[in-house]
Design a binder for these strands. Structure first.
Lengths: 219, 219
DNA sequence: GGCCTCATTTTGACTCCTCAAAATAAAATA
DNA sequence: TATTTTATTTTGAGGAGTCAAAATGAGGCC
C-alpha cells in the first residue's frame, strides 16, 4: 500500500500535468509539495523505482499508467469525501478541501463505495471538479473561463478552480457557484476587468486572475 | 499534534488500564501494539518525556491526566465513526472497527462534531462501548457478563467486548446484540457452559470465554 | 568561446518508529 | 542462598521522508 506521501506526490503530479506527455519540473513539484528541491528529486527517484513515474534527469517527470491510476484513485476519494462532507454533514464548500486532504488517505474502498451510493454516483464535487470513476475514467467537460468566454451569452458556472477558503467564500457570496446561470456583461481587456451577472444575484466585477478561476460552459 | 502512533499507544494504554492507579507492563503494551518489547520501552520513554504517561522503569506505565484526555479524544472519534458507519453508511457492525482504526486519526474535530450532531449525541457505539464526551467524560454503566450474572432474571445486552468480526457476526446471528433482552436459562460451572435465551431468537449455549464477552445489565 | 545564472542533483545529517540481539534486573525455584 | 527463568532495557542498525548546503549541469549572454 502506498504511503500518503506517495499518494500526495502522484496526485499533485496528475493535477499539474497537462496531457499525458508533458514533463513536470522538479522545481514545480517541490513548490507544490512544500519541500526543498532536493527532497523532490529523491522522492521522485523512489517513485520511478516503483514504476509510478518516468523520470528524466534534469528533464522532469511524468506519470506512468500505473501512477496515473493511483492518482485518480486518490482523487476519486478526495472528491467524493468533499461532496459527502457538504451534502451529508453540512460543511461549507470552502472548508472541505482541507478535511478531504487528510481523509483521502485513510478511507477504504468499501466506505468510499458506500459514500458513492449514498450520494447517487455523482459526477462532480462541490467545486465542479470531475469525480473519477472507480475504474479511473474522468469525464472532463470542455469549458472556458470567465476571462475568455463570449459576452452576452447564456452560460453556466461549471467549476471553480481555487481551493483557497477566502476565494471560495467570496465566490459563493457573489453567487458564482457551480450550476448557477451567468452572463458576462462586459469585458475591459485593458483594465483587466470582467463584469459578470449571476442569475439571482447582483453583478460583480472580477479581475483577470479571479475570472480565470471561474470556468463556465454553454447553457 | 500527536502522531497516530502516539495516539494509538495512549488509546491502548487507556483500554488496558483498570483504574487510574494501575500500572501496565511493557510486555502487555508490546503485544497490544504488535511490536517487540524494546520498541515499547523506547516509545513509552518518549511519551513520558512528553508528559503523557508516568513511567516507572521495570514497573510499568500509567496515563497522566493529559495522556488520558488525549486517549479519550481518540476513543471518542473512534466510536463516533463506528456508529456513523453503521447508522449512516449501512456498514455491518463487525467491520466498522477496522475502518475506524484508520479514520480516528485523520478526522477533524469539526467533522466529528457534525457527526455527533447528525447522530443525535449518542452515548454508545454499535458494540455498546460508551462514547466519551467532547470534554472527556465517560459514562460507564455497571454491568455483569453472561458468565457471572444471575440466572432466570430479566437482563438486557449492554455491550459486546470483542472486535473480532467472526465473533461479532456470531453474536448478531445468535440475537445477542446491544439492547436485546435476554435471560440466562442455566449455567453449568463445571462444564463451563451457559445457556442463554435472547428475546425473539432461539436459545444458545456459550462457553465461558464467549459468555465473558457479552456484558448485560438489569432490565 | 568564456562566463554567469539558475535549476537540479548530491551529500551528509536528522527525526520518527521500528527490529534484532545482547545486557541487565528482578523474581522464582531449588 | 545460589541458580535459573523471565521481563525489561540497551545498543546498534535500518527505512521513510525531510532539510541545509555544496556540487554539477545547461542554457543564455557578452
Amino acid at each position: 500500500m502506498p504511503s500518503s506521501t506517495v499518494e500526495n506526490y502522484l496526485k499533485q503530479i496528475y493535477l499539474m500535468q497537462q496531457g499525458d506527455e508533458a514533463l513536470i519540473s522538479m522545481g514545480h513539484i517541490a513548490i507544490a509539495m512544500g519541500v526543498v528541491p532536493g527532497t523532490a528529486t529523491s522522492m521522485i527517484k523512489t517513485l520511478a523505482d516503483s514504476g509510478l513515474v518516468e523520470y528524466e534527469p534534469r528533464g522532469g517527470v511524468r506519470l506512468t499508467t500505473g501512477g496515473r491510476k493511483l492518482a485518480l484513485h486518490v482523487l476519486r476519494r478526495h472528491r467524493l469525501v468533499e461532496l459527502f462532507l457538504v451534502k451529508v454533514l453540512g460543511l461549507d464548500w470552502s472548508e472541505v478541501h482541507a478535511e478531504a486532504e487528510e481523509l483521502e488517505h485513510s478511507i477504504s474502498d468499501k466506505v468510499i463505495d458506500r459514500i458513492d451510493d449514498v450520494l447517487g454516483h455523482p459526477s462532480v464535487d462541490p467545486h465542479g471538479d470531475p469525480i473519477p470513476s472507480a475504474k479511473g475514467h474522468v469525464n472532463d467537460r470542455p469549458t472556458m473561463s470567465l476571462a475568455n468566454c463570449e459576452t452576452e451569452t447564456s452560460l453556466r458556472v461549471a467549476r471553480v478552480i481555487d481551493q483557497d477558503p477566502a476565494f471560495l467564500q467570496f465566490a459563493s457570496r457573489s453567487g458564482l457557484t457551480p450550476g448557477v446561470s451567468v452572463k458576462v456583461e462586459s469585458r475591459e481587456a485593458v483594465a483587466g476587468a470582467v463584469s459578470v451577472k449571476p442569475q439571482g444575484a447582483k453583478a460583480v466585477t472580477l479581475g483577470t486572475a479571479a475570472a480565470q478561476k471561474i470556468l463556465v460552459e454553454p447553457y
